[in-house]
Amino acid sequence: MLSFDTDGVRFNLRVAGVILAGDHVLLHQIAGTDYWILPGGRVEGGEATSAALHRELQEELGVNVQVGRLLWVVESFFTLQGRRFHELGFYYRVTLPGSPGGRVPARGQSSHRQDGSNLLTFRWFSLGDLGHGVRLLPPVLGAALAHPPLTTRHLVYRDEPADS
């Protein structure tokens, strides 16, 4: 996976899928955390971001998704468990198959998957709940999900002060 440490900062190259059903979005959470993220994962060396997302969602949800267009490229600067991160995320629109099955939960239900040492929980959330009782990371996507852009947008999120 493309994740490495440099100058005291962990760099991650991440992909994620924006899976919408009406006014709901599919999110996942790692057990023991207080935040939710869009499903996806890290890119392997030599792997295109769209192919990485297809692979990650096949592994996580057990279904053959259709990866659509790139919505956002998000640069996130944050600190987690005392470690500084710089994450570059590619967020694609994703369509589920007509009858998804696999580990895609029905609305109002959750599904779970063990991913190495992490237990992932998948659940649909109303877009109106994001930022209001549901902590989505990066938070810059909360409002953006309600109005996906017509062309790819670059967003920057910082939860720490910029270096002078």
Rank of each mutant, 00 (worst) to 15 (best):
2 L>Q: 15
2 L>I: 14
2 L>M: 15
5 D>V: 13
5 D>C: 07
7 D>I: 06
8 G>C: 09
10 R>N: 11
10 R>A: 11
13 L>T: 12
13 L>M: 11
16 A>M: 11
16 A>F: 07
16 A>E: 14
17 G>Q: 08
17 G>L: 07
21 A>Y: 04
22 G>F: 05
25 V>K: 05
26 L>K: 00
28 H>M: 11
28 H>A: 01
28 H>L: 09
29 Q>R: 15
30 I>S: 04
31 A>S: 13
31 A>D: 15
32 G>P: 02
33 T>D: 10
35 Y>K: 06
35 Y>E: 08
36 W>Q: 08
37 I>E: 13
37 I>M: 13
37 I>G: 03
41 G>M: 05
42 R>W: 08
42 R>N: 13
44 E>V: 10
45 G>V: 14
45 G>T: 12
46 G>S: 14
47 E>S: 04
48 A>T: 06
48 A>N: 03
48 A>Y: 06
50 S>P: 01
51 A>D: 12
55 R>A: 12
56 E>A: 13
59 E>L: 12
60 E>T: 03
60 E>M: 07
62 G>D: 02
62 G>H: 03
65 V>P: 00
66 Q>D: 06
66 Q>E: 12
67 V>A: 08
72 W>A: 04
73 V>K: 10
73 V>L: 14
77 F>P: 00
78 F>T: 14
78 F>A: 13
82 G>W: 09
82 G>M: 09
83 R>L: 14
83 R>Y: 12
84 R>T: 09
85 F>D: 01
87 E>D: 15
87 E>M: 06
88 L>G: 04
88 L>E: 11
90 F>K: 01
90 F>D: 02
93 R>Q: 15
93 R>L: 15
94 V>P: 01
95 T>N: 13
96 L>M: 04
99 S>I: 07
99 S>N: 14
100 P>H: 08
101 G>M: 10
102 G>I: 01
103 R>D: 10
104 V>C: 08
105 P>G: 07
105 P>I: 04
107 R>S: 03
108 G>F: 03
108 G>M: 02
109 Q>M: 07
110 S>M: 12
111 S>L: 01
113 R>F: 03
114 Q>V: 13
115 D>F: 09
115 D>L: 10
116 G>Q: 08
118 N>M: 04
120 L>G: 00
122 F>E: 09
122 F>T: 04
124 W>T: 02
126 S>P: 00
127 L>Q: 04
127 L>F: 08
129 D>M: 07
131 G>A: 03
132 H>K: 07
132 H>Q: 12
134 V>Q: 06
134 V>R: 03
135 R>F: 14
136 L>A: 07
136 L>I: 04
137 L>N: 06
138 P>Q: 10
139 P>I: 08
141 L>G: 02
142 G>P: 00
143 A>P: 00
143 A>V: 08
144 A>N: 02
144 A>I: 06
144 A>D: 08
149 P>R: 11
150 L>Q: 12
150 L>G: 15
150 L>F: 02
151 T>M: 09
151 T>K: 10
151 T>D: 08
151 T>G: 04
152 T>K: 12
153 R>P: 00
154 H>Y: 15
155 L>T: 01
155 L>V: 01
156 V>C: 09
158 R>Q: 11
160 E>Y: 09
161 P>T: 12
161 P>W: 07
163 D>Q: 09
163 D>A: 15
